[in-house]
Simulated scan of single mutants.
Amino acid sequence: MESQQSPKYYAFIGMLLVTLNTTSNIMAGRIIPAEVFGLNIILPGGIIAFPATFFLLDIVTEFYGYKNAKRLIWFNLICQGTFALLITLILSFKTSITPEKDAAFQSSLGTSLLIFVAFFSASLVADTFNCKLMAKWKTYTNGKHLWVRAFGSTALGELLFSVVWVSIYFFGTLPSSQMMTIILSQYVIKLLYEAFCLPLTYLAVYLLKKHETYQPIRYENFNPQA
């Protein structure tokens, strides 16, 4: 018989988090010009996948608790670091493919280590802040107003992530004015993304409460400082 405390979906959410972050990190350097509400904006390619990571961490924090969300953050960082180191190592070996093909590999994947440094710094600050703030607000609101807690903590967390990531990754390669444009552009998209995901957040938490064998964290017994 399966244990009542054995989570069915926690590992899957963690795998999905790693997948989304790996995708966004690989495509981060592919800058995409776009027009939103008549404004010309500049976006990193990872913007398509990355905002969903905050959506996942909000769900984990709400249902599994801050400690389990923080554990996923660290597991994800270890996976991203392993990926970056392996890619850097493999690219350092001589190859028998044509110089043109090797140049394509080097161009697309050669910055993996830099991307990880930027990601590690931003994630450690922003993801941890987002999850801890959401957990604290859950205590202060007696578990109510999920939409306020999810949107508010993500809005602040995404801002922190954007500032830290862009500042590190594009340092010395882009003028500060263009870096600011990228920060503001992707932040607007992230806020719109989060607003779109709010109904999905409610749905995901509802489904977890209905089908997950793990007992959800009760706010009155939860200490965000633990």
Results as ranks from 00 to 15, higher is better:
residue 1 M to G: 13
residue 6 S to T: 13
residue 8 K to C: 07
residue 8 K to T: 10
residue 8 K to D: 11
residue 9 Y to S: 11
residue 17 L to I: 10
residue 22 T to H: 10
residue 28 A to V: 04
residue 38 G to C: 01
residue 41 I to D: 02
residue 41 I to W: 00
residue 43 L to Y: 00
residue 46 G to A: 03
residue 46 G to Y: 06
residue 48 I to V: 14
residue 48 I to W: 06
residue 49 A to S: 10
residue 63 F to N: 02
residue 64 Y to H: 02
residue 65 G to W: 01
residue 69 A to K: 04
residue 70 K to S: 04
residue 72 L to A: 03
residue 76 N to V: 05
residue 79 C to N: 07
residue 83 F to N: 13
residue 89 L to K: 11
residue 93 F to E: 11
residue 94 K to D: 13
residue 98 T to Q: 15
residue 100 E to G: 06
residue 100 E to I: 13
residue 103 A to Q: 14
residue 105 F to L: 15
residue 107 S to Q: 12
residue 107 S to E: 14
residue 114 L to C: 07
residue 120 F to A: 14
residue 123 S to H: 07
residue 123 S to Y: 05
residue 124 L to T: 08
residue 130 N to C: 11
residue 132 K to E: 05
residue 133 L to F: 10
residue 137 W to F: 12
residue 137 W to S: 07
residue 139 T to R: 11
residue 142 N to Q: 08
residue 142 N to H: 09
residue 147 W to S: 07
residue 149 R to P: 06
residue 157 G to F: 12
residue 159 L to E: 12
residue 161 F to P: 08
residue 162 S to V: 15
residue 164 V to A: 10
residue 166 V to F: 14
residue 176 S to A: 14
residue 179 M to Y: 13
residue 186 Q to D: 08
residue 186 Q to W: 09
residue 188 V to P: 06
residue 188 V to E: 10
residue 191 L to Y: 01
residue 199 P to L: 05
residue 204 A to F: 12
residue 204 A to V: 07
residue 204 A to C: 13
residue 208 L to T: 11
residue 213 T to D: 03
residue 221 N to I: 00
